[in-house]
Computed example of a mutant assay.
Amino acid sequence: MNMALVGDIGGTNARFALWNNDRIESVQTLAAADFPTPEQAVIHYLSTLGLAPDSLSDVCLACAGPVSGEDFRFTNNHWHLNRTTFRQALQLDNMLLINDFTAMALGMTRLREDERIQICPGEPESDSPSLVIGPGTGLGVSTLLPQGNEQWKVLPGEGGHVDLPIGSLREAALWQQLFGELGHVRAEDILSGSGLMRLYRSICALDNHAPNLTTPAEVSTAALAGDPIAEEVLQLFCVWLGRVAGNNVLTLGARGGVYIVGGVIPRFAAFFQTSGFASSLSSKGCMSGYLKGVPVWLVTASYPGLEGAGVALQQMLEPA
């Protein structure tokens, strides 16, 4: 496969790289707000490398949101992408548009040992699915399926929108508080950056504390400094993530392992390692034994979405 372009586009930033000789290079992050269209962002990126808009024939873009049809409208920025218009603007032979968590899942096939921290020990079953789950702007969930011959298939879904599971009386009281605010309470309503703040405010309201923290970073910093309210917030966040991840392992038979991704958990990785995540993951009553031995890793790689976009493009153009 010739040199290609890969992109990982979220609500705020667009990351671009060249896919060359089975690896990414020349990574740049651009603010979506600085460009009226994704085509112009790509043309700007190429120009910084001294490349003309028509210098590449193949592109894969990983985009946040459901991907189907001719048109794609980005959920959290002003960009709109029409496949035909985009291909014509860059004179492309091949354009692949995939969900951002599909790319994230494929990126797990490229991890080095120093790009992940083991949270739960175990041996992955090589022919079983793996779960990829990560709190960020929302809660992303995907399933990675081995196909043999170093080929992979991803089952995208909307697992972040499942109902928030309750496992204790304290959680039930908090759920009632959240239900009064939201009505339907989804996992993503807690397991995301904004969800961390919602959980903090709910605990303060339930226990009659005045909330004095205003950002997720402030909550995590206060928790690590020993603030008891913030510490409970972070602990419950980890416990709920474990419970949701464990439910997914049971549903999918994901004995290939669990990958924790996204930008939230790495900010408090040491806390996460000793939190209630592992126990809540495996506390499934009569099925608790099924979760024993399923390995869990916290992913610390810098650009797994870009890596995954490259893998997706390569699998399309060079099938086994």
Rank of each mutant, 00 (worst) to 15 (best):
I119H: 11
M287H: 06
T251N: 14
E318C: 09
A245C: 07
M3T: 14
M1L: 13
L224T: 03
M95P: 00
D100W: 14
Q91T: 13
W240D: 13
L298T: 01
V239S: 04
M287F: 13
D54V: 02
E115I: 00
L241E: 11
L306K: 03
T37R: 13
M104I: 10
R198T: 12
I119D: 03
G246I: 08
V239R: 14
G193D: 09
T214L: 03
E231H: 07
V233C: 06
A89N: 05
L241I: 09
H184K: 11
A62Q: 04
R73C: 01
L236Q: 06
A230F: 01
P38W: 04
L182P: 10
P216I: 05
A41R: 06
P228K: 05
W297N: 06
W240T: 12
T274N: 12
V239I: 15
S192I: 13
L182V: 07
N248Y: 15
L281I: 05
L111N: 05
T300S: 03
S275Y: 14
D163C: 13
I190F: 10
L298V: 04
A309L: 06
G193V: 05
W152T: 05
L213D: 08
M197N: 08
Q151Y: 02
R243D: 09
C60W: 05
N248H: 15
M1R: 12
L164K: 11
D93P: 01
N2A: 12
E181S: 12
C63I: 04
L131Q: 01
N248M: 07
L250C: 06
L224P: 00
K284G: 08
L155C: 04
S220A: 03
R201L: 13
F277H: 10
P36D: 13
Q273T: 11
D8S: 07
V294R: 14
E123Y: 03
G140F: 04
S26Y: 05
G69Y: 12
G180Q: 14
Y45M: 10
N248A: 11
G276C: 14
M3C: 07
A301H: 01
H209C: 12
L241A: 10
D207L: 01
A17V: 07
L178I: 12
L234G: 00
V154Q: 08
G183W: 15
H44N: 10
G157D: 02
L291E: 07
G65K: 03
I43M: 09
G122R: 04
M3G: 06
E150A: 13
V311G: 01
C286P: 11
S142H: 02
R112C: 04
D34G: 05
F271H: 15
A64R: 15
F101E: 03
F16D: 08
S282N: 09
S220K: 00
H209N: 04
F72S: 03
E25H: 07
A222D: 02
G69H: 11
A187M: 12
V233E: 01
D189F: 06
A31M: 15
N20S: 12
G136P: 01
L241C: 05
K292W: 00
L106C: 07
V239L: 02
P36T: 08
D227T: 14
A309I: 01
T75R: 05
W152H: 11
N94G: 09
P135A: 00
Q118P: 05
N82M: 06
I133G: 03
L81G: 03
P146W: 04
P66D: 07
G138N: 10
M1W: 11
A254G: 08
L234S: 02
R186C: 14
R170D: 11
I98N: 08
M287Y: 13
G180Y: 11
V296G: 02
